[in-house]
Design a protein around this nucleic acid. Sequence first.
RNA 1: GGGCCGCUAGCUCAACUGGACAGAGCAACGGGCUUUUAACCCGCAGGUUCGGGGUUCGAGUCCCCGGCGGCCCA
Length: 513
Amino acid sequence: MTDPSHDDDAGRSRLVAERDHRLSKLSSLRDEGIDPYPVRFDRDRTLGELVEEFGNLGAGEETDISVKVAGRVMLRRGHGKLFFATVRDHSGEIQLFVSKAVVGDDAFDRFDTVDLGDWLGVEGTVMSTRKGELSVRVERFELLAKALLPLPDKWKGLSDVDTRFRQRYVDLIVNEDARRVFAIRSAVVASIRNSLLERGFLEVETPMLHDIVGGAAARPFSTHHNSLDIDLYMRIALELHLKRLIVAGLDRVFEIGRCFRNEGLDTRHNPEFTMLEAYQAFADYHDMMDLTEHLVAAAAEAAIGTMIVELEGRSVDLTPPWRRITVADLIRESLGVTMHPSMPVTEARAALDDAGVEYRDEWGSGKLMDVLYDDRAQHDVFEPTFVIDYPREVSPLARPHRDDPHLVERFELIVAGRELANAFSELNDPVDQLARFEAGARAKAQGDPEAGDVDYDYVRALEYGMPPAGGLGIGIDRLVMLIAGVTSIREVILFPTLRPEQFDEAEFRFPDA
RNA sequence: GGGCCGCUAGCUCAACUGGACAGAGCAACGGGCUUUUAACCCGCAGGUUCGGGGUUCGAGUCCCCGGCGGCCCA
């Protein structure tokens, strides 16, 4: 390969030229016996801790307290025989004050070769500048890792969404808001986990590889196990294994885990996403509503310190209790139409015709009612609302309603027109469950790609007796979207699914060292 | 899958109804500066305008095909 220092930059991209320039800095350092990628650095505090400890230093005040800190160089300001640099770690930022008189001529020249994006370890004393900026007066510094590629615009950051998601590491370096969203995500998950553990729930992990499809209506990803020579599916839900544990007598269980659905990608769907499911013996769906209110409100409080969230220019108040309304009442309220799963199909179809909603011939009144709710009523629900009592036809794992056998004891939590949670009083009658599995299997045989299989082992489990139980599923990604106030699921998933990038291997060839 | 919108320097963006050599800020490079705060000042360089084809005296701009992305819909 050519020596970059003698290479002709003409005709090459600015990026390649800059990278080559930085590569030549690497070889210069190595020539001087300096390792540009040393093995470790002993810092004695984080930058956040440094700011916390010395934040009240008066302007111009200097200490003789020596510190060792590390961070990435984000800004640089040269003044002849003085450099200012801003370095950042995960916890905060600090200014470096690098004086030629303090570090000496050689080290000062070496600092001149430091690039934005480099990681530095420094040792020096804590001081405040004349303008009152907390700084470290650098006495020694060490390159901890060289950055070969330039950072995006130091002020505007990176805004191209494709690049932001493909190179999330760059997004997180330069976009404060991206860091904020993932801090919120971590706090939300921690809060939910803590809330459930406090209530006596046991956290479990169940298989992601399933031999049959069940627990939800969705198309699965298929894979193959070589040594057993069987096809397997990535799980589309957590439900059926967790309920086996309720059969087992585990009483209260939950899992926070990845599910996979082989569907399109849009602002609300990623092929892999995170679900919380929790099951509580001896409880019903009313108990699960109370639990949901607590989990969501506590998560918002923990993550952003308030239950008022801002979304699409509107405020949503998550303070419990939330409105509870039946599907039938909601349809009546927003469309002026009365529907019930027991109504004649012709009348149900007429209601959808009036609303301009399309349907299929094989759908019964319950399915038609659910579709009308889904298409015409759900989107207008903005404040947190439990929509309850769904048609039995669309809820194969939920228990029949205690007052109306055409309905099931089920709710969805709707916020800002989006479904955040789904829960039931769980069906624990093995005879009824088998019949519903078989109905689903018939639909699958007739070509419904989202229908599931008969899970005989699950029916067998029910035959051993599942206590009455309430179950709850919450889409964690959507909950984080709500609390963080973002409108795309890709904003809350660190590495969302993307079309693979095409690389040119020639761009990754390095000159001989 | 359908409709609409977009793709210009490493990043963020300009470029009139088709008109001259495609510009600017940041980053980079060279120089100056020992208290800056997106430091500043001087200088210099950087382009397959997503790709291909077409129309035209002339295309970043218009047309066609393709790629990638975004939004909306199913």
